[in-house]
Design a protein around this nucleic acid. Structure first.
Length: 477
RNA sequence: GCGUCUGUAGCUCAGCUGGUAGAGCACGAGACUUUUAAUCUUGUGGUCGUGGGUUCGAUCCCCACCGGACGCACCA
């Protein structure tokens, strides 16, 4: 059917696939121009390009709704006004086609801002019918598999995509202004370290070696600290070969930064300032909606010691091994007996505390065994100088005072390796990294933020797949 | 991986104690130079996710498989 029209357009001597179309204005800008009713003979010449999303055929007069990234506007096309050749073309237009319009800006008798077309240029024919604009796209799978249509026909999807860009741009500006240097480190790793996650495996043919897609940015950025890049960050994709959920996509975007001569306290300040900058950049105030609740981003954020939260919600002292074991058994945690104390502690924390954290709240001072890359407190080596920022039960940021002592680092790597399948261990022995550290790594604060989750929280989006344009889906049969 | 729900026209959805399907929009034809979910007349459009089974007969019941949603598990 549409192929038939395509042929007819070609018979008119017109290229249905268009070409360069210069000098058009964004529709939103056109709508801001001073407006005169068509009956009062406006003279404002405008030029727009976009997609036809609706058509109202009035015989010798056509009304189209033209849509571009910035907005939509009505196009009025009269047979007498555009001439015979153009009129033939207009009759071959469908919803979904891309066109260029040149004409006069004004408003109709019904007060609708419009462009009265003098010339129509077809820029591309749509051979497939588009979803109807009124009913939109309800089927989630259909939207995800046809994100290009979702962006056109679901305003919120485009809105979120734009907000994501704005958030990332704000982070870059914020960090660049503070003298941070943005770098790119490898995504192909020989050892997938820096976090506890199963990596994706791939193979390099020429070298005939297996490689892993990175699960974190950490270890290369720290090598750069050794190399004298004192304030460094990267925003990049990481890959974890694990389950998919409303909070997890196999590939997601991390921002990690490192500041020489800082610690986790300086990271706390920075995190707070950075988030507030993002919130302010989006507009709409610092108290933001989240499902049927709200999130208050007004600083200072709450600060809570891990140990205190543990006592409050689990009901015992996290250092008391016997009580912790009892609590773990009471909660029916799996394999309690085979796990070491700190692991039990954290499983209890996740089971009893996490969901109760409304936040934003900095939870700080973690059991050391959970944190092989973190500096221990000088006065208490069982505690690591780490915090996580929680918002409505979601981990949004993670920061350490970085461990810069290569001897301790080697020990924590070894200790983590003992008795654990390597892929389950956060610390994979990485001699090359330790060698770098042995050349003198500055004391530093480090911070990681899950960008996708940040976008979720700031845009009131309850599922990660709606802040990622193309989330992973199983291919259709 | 387990459990619950789900898959009908391009889109949004009806339907049926089991008798091989309907609407709106979109698309085609016709009328209309101020419509805006345009309207009016009329027409086209479906392997009812796939494959088996039960049945005289399956979109409907049963089984398996393939997608998807949610929950649990996994994931600091």
């Amino acid at each position: 059917m549409r192929l038939e029209k395509l042929r007819k357009i070609e018979e008119l001597g017109v290229d249905p696939w268009g070409g360069r179309f210069d000098g058009h204005q964004p529709i939103a800008k056109i709508r801001e121009l001073p407006v005169v009713a068509f009956d009062d003979h406006p003279t404002e010449q405008v030029k727009a390009a976009g997609r036809i999303i609706q058509k109202r055929d009035q015989g010798k007069l056509f009304f189209l709704d033209l849509w571009d990234q910035t907005g939509k506007i009505q196009i009025m096309i009269g047979q007498k006004q555009v001439g015979e050749e153009c009129w033939k073309l207009v009759n071959l237009l469908d919803i979904g086609d891309l066109i260029g319009v040149e004409g006069v800006f004004g408003k109709t008798r019904k007060q609708e801002l419009s462009i009265r077309a003098e010339k129509i240029t077809i820029l591309s024919k749509s051979l497939e019918p588009h979803p109807t604009s009124y009913f939109g796209m309800e089927n989630i799978e259909f939207r995800l598999r046809h994100r290009y249509l979702d962006l056109i026909h679901t305003p919120e999807t485009l809105q979120r995509a734009k907000q994501r860009v704005l958030i990332i741009r704000t982070i870059r500006q914020f960090l660049d202004n503070q003298g941070y240097m943005e770098v790119e480190t490898p995504t192909l790793h020989a050892i997938a370290g820096g976090a506890a996650a199963r990596p994706f495996t791939t193979h390099h043919n020429a070298l005939d070696i297996d490689l892993f897609l990175r699960i974190a940015l950490e270890l290369h950025l720290k090598r750069l600290l050794v190399g004298g890049l004192e304030k460094v960050y990267e925003i990049g994709r990481v890959f974890r070969n694990e389950g998919i959920s409303v909070k997890h996509n196999p590939e997601f975007t991390m921002m990690e930064l490192y500041q020489a001569y800082g610690d986790y306290r300086s990271m706390m300040e920075l995190t707070e300032n950075l988030l507030v900058a993002c919130v302010d950049a989006l507009g709409g105030g610092r108290v933001r909606p989240w499902a049927d609740k709200t999130i208050d981003f007004n600083p200072p954020f709450q600060r809570a010691k891990y140990e205190d939260l543990f006592r409050e919600h689990v009901g015992c002292d996290m250092h008391n091994e016997a009580e912790v074991l009892q609590a773990a058994q009471r909660m029916r945690l799996k394999d309690v007996l085979t796990k070491e104390h700190d692991v039990r502690v954290h499983e209890l924390f996740e089971a009893c505390v996490e969901d109760k954290l409304v936040g934003p709240v900095f939870v700080y001072d973690y059991p050391a065994a959970l944190c092989p890359l973190t500096k221990r407190k000088r006065e208490n080596p069982k505690i690591a100088e780490r915090f996580e920022l929680y918002v409505h039960g979601m981990e949004l940021a993670n920061a350490y005072t970085e461990l810069n002592d290569p001897l301790t680092q080697e020990e924590t790597f070894k200790r983590q390796l003992a008795g654990l399948p390597e892929e389950d261990s956060m610390a994979k022995m990485d001699h090359d990294f330790i060698l770098a550290q042995r050349h003198g790594m500055p004391p530093a604060g480090g911070l990681g933020i899950g960008i996708d989750r940040l976008v979720m929280l700031l845009t009131n989006t309850q599922t990660i797949r709606d802040v990622i344009l193309f989330p992973l889906l199983r291919p259709e049969a």
